[in-house]
């Protein structure tokens, strides 16, 4: 599923993304606040769903080659995070949904 469409299903607002990455194909989601767990997963270009709003969420996502980072629970990433997202070429979005609800929405969308 295209990243842009997938993010739509979780009512996400994109904070940084470019056109090429909007259309990237995404098939996996990792939902975690523990970055150590993310580093253990072997998934191709997953979407990282997290409520951790630090640079480390982005750096971890970048290291594992994630397709994007979606911040849940209505948290607002600080502006520096959007700057870093641009620098790393890593799409960043946020949603007002609680993490569980966002995960359910993303999971249902990927099942189709």
């Amino acid at each position: 599923m295209k990243l842009k469409d997938l993010l739509d299903t979780a009512q996400a607002r994109i904070l940084w993304c470019d056109t090429a990455r909007e259309n990237a194909d995404v098939r996996h989601v990792v939902a975690a606040d523990l970055m150590s767990d993310v580093l253990m997963m072997d998934l191709d270009h997953p979407l990282l769903l997290t409520s951790l709003v630090t640079d480390q969420a982005l750096r971890t996502a970048h290291v594992v080659g994630a397709a994007a980072v979606l911040v849940a629970n209505g948290k607002t990433p600080p502006p520096e995070m959007a700057d870093l997202a641009r620098e790393l070429g890593l799409p960043l979005a946020r949603t007002a949904l609680p993490k569980f609800d966002a995960a359910v929405a993303l999971g249902r969308a990927l099942e189709k």
């Binding site: 606040d33 523990l34 970055m35 150590s36 767990d37 951790l52």
Partner: peptide, 15 residues
């Protein structure tokens, strides 16, 4: 609280 210190660092680096 920063998402680290789960005791997986070294084992994961080995993995």
């Amino acid at each position: 609280s920063l998402g680290f210190g789960a005791g997986m660092g070294l084992p994961n680096a080995r993995r």
